[in-house]
Amino acid sequence: MENIFDIQTDQDFLTASLKIFSYQYENVEIYRRFVDYLNINPGEVNCLTKIPFLPIEMFKNHRILDKNVTADRFFQSSGTTQMNLSKHFIADENIYEESIYKSFEQFIGKPEDFIFLGLLPSYLEKQNSSLIYMVDYLMKKSAKSENGYFLYNHSDLFKLLNQLKDKKVILFGVSFALLDFLDFCDSSSKTLKFSDTLTIIETGGMKGRKEEMTKDELLAILQEGFKTDKIYSEYSMTELLSQAYSLGKNEYQCPNWMRIMVRNAEDPFNYEKEGRTGAINIIDLANIHSCSFIATQDLGKIVGDRFQVLGRIDHSDIRGCSLLVS
């Protein structure tokens, strides 16, 4: 099978997607059972809109893995110990690392050029986080002595950011932690005077830690607090091996081996036109050894060659896929 990272055109993407669909139908048992349950003839799948997308909840109850590989490592979604958490088994870490590097290089720059700081308390406190693996890998490629993580030690982070104000710094931060950091600065009367060389990349993740707000409201607060007109965002999840990036607005771009499609929230087999809100389906061809075709519970819409994330589906409104998740 061709290297997915060599994809350049829509035809390249379609060809690779159909090959991977056929491969995963034959070799990923849960996906094959799902396709068969829908009475879909895999031989008739000849375009992206005919590919069945596996409900993301399946990762909570099933080991979704290519029968030709073994996998000791897995990534696990965040949550409490009482919750049924998603597990994504990883057969080839090299694929994930290449996806991390090439996506970051395409949208941000070479990792070697940056110092990386992580304000990711909820993820650091959990094991098997794909986000921590990603930031660890970028830090390793950067090899800067200043790289490091912060839990709730906001004072130390403030001091370091000011010491590094003339250097190119990436601060990856979970949404609630970035807001907590700004609250600390405000309550401590600490004036933020960071230079244009600091790039904030928020990674989502309120999850009940603060009052829910829209992405646009969050970005506006962060822009004001960090005195910048651009807050970057990264969009991925435990069940993926690829990342989309937003470079200053709530409009994400996918690397060439990843694609977003927006399905009708009540009819999962119909798709919305550009500009109309629906539920996000993701094609992630880096998921070669699990499932590349995932129906998420995120709401969004296509805007030109980009997409917006608008929130989460209300569980009471899910239609069509719920009976398939067992």
Rank of each mutant, 00 (worst) to 15 (best):
G208F: 10
G208S: 05
R209F: 09
R209L: 06
K210I: 09
K210R: 14
E211H: 13
E211A: 11
E212D: 14
E212C: 10
M213E: 12
M213C: 12
M213R: 15
M213D: 02
T214D: 09
T214A: 10
K215S: 08
K215D: 05
D216K: 06
D216G: 00
D216Y: 08
E217V: 09
E217D: 11
E217Q: 14
L218Q: 04
L218D: 01
L219T: 08
A220M: 09
I221Y: 12
I221F: 11
I221W: 09
L222M: 11
L222D: 03
E224M: 13
E224C: 08
G225W: 12
F226L: 04
T228L: 04
T228D: 09
D229A: 04
D229V: 01
K230T: 12
I231G: 02
I231A: 06
Y232K: 15
S233Y: 11
S233K: 12
S233D: 13
S233F: 09
S233E: 15
E234M: 15
E234C: 10
Y235T: 00
Y235G: 01
Y235S: 02
S236Y: 09
S236M: 07
M237K: 00
E239K: 01
E239Q: 02
L240W: 11
L241T: 05
L241A: 06
L241H: 13
Q243D: 07
A244L: 03
Y245H: 04
S246E: 08
S246V: 01
L247K: 10
L247S: 05
K249A: 11
K249Q: 11
K249S: 15
K249V: 12
N250T: 03
N250P: 01
E251M: 05
Y252D: 03
Y252L: 01
Y252G: 01
Y252E: 02
Y252S: 00
Q253R: 14
Q253P: 13
C254R: 03
P255L: 03
